[in-house]
């Protein structure tokens, strides 16, 4: 997993609430057995017409936002299914951070496994950053994970909260499985105990 430290980039405004994982990556692209290559189908049904041509009204198709690395989104981003294809598609497109007032739990969790930083901020802050995002390349945002801040175009810095364990893993690009494997003795002890007390498990 790639580390996440700081990021300065163009943010795409997506004010719609409840952007679900079926919108982020529709089901027909879940048939892959790989993690990569999903970026071209990110937001597929919003981004392309049924004949495959680009919908010029969709934000990521407009010249100012084609190189976005950040999304500023409406409430409850990532609701719906557990498909990790959603963060895979975002990452493959080049999105490394999403800012919203709230995220669905599973999506939020999946982001951290893929080096994407989901940032929860109060409504007023998201609103201000949404306005910046609407200015495209003229108003780049800066995300600094170490200091837990997002800085808007006018220099206003917004502080965000993040779980310390998740922050540590993201800053260092750590693999959860490797860390847990180090606790194998504790897992074994648990299994031995349960084999005695709950043999049916």
């Amino acid at each position: 997993m790639d580390k996440f430290t700081t990021l300065t980039g163009i943010a795409a405004p997506m004010p719609l609430v409840n952007i679900d994982t079926d919108m982020i990556i529709p089901k027909q692209f879940l048939k892959t057995i790989h993690r990569s290559g999903l970026g071209k189908n990110l937001f597929d049904e919003m981004r392309y017409f049924p004949d495959g041509t680009e919908n010029p009204d969709f934000v990521l198709n407009k010249p100012a936002w084609r190189d976005s690395q950040i999304i500023v989104a409406g409430d409850n981003f990532g609701c719906g299914s557990s498909r990790e294809h959603a963060p895979w598609a975002l990452l493959d497109y080049g999105i490394r951070a999403v800012i919203s007032t709230s995220f669905a739990d599973i999506f939020y969790n999946n982001c951290f496994k893929n080096g994407i930083l989901p940032i929860v901020l109060p409504a007023e802050a998201v609103e201000a950053l949404m306005k910046d995002a609407e200015n495209g390349a003229n108003a780049r945002l800066t995300v600094d994970l170490e200091s837990q801040t997002v800085t808007g175009a006018d220099g206003t810095a917004y502080h965000f909260d993040i779980d310390p364990h998740r922050k540590h893993c993201l800053l260092n690009g750590l693999d959860d499985i490797g860390l847990t494997m180090e606790k194998a003795p504790a897992i074994e002890a648990y299994e031995t105990r349960i084999a005695q007390s709950q043999p049916w498990v």
Partner: peptide
Amino acid sequence: AHGIGTSEVEHVLATQTLIQKKS
């Protein structure tokens, strides 16, 4: 019982555990 992403599927396959905080 709850849903998990594919990275967590791999984590459970390898360790039979999941990293969780209390909801």
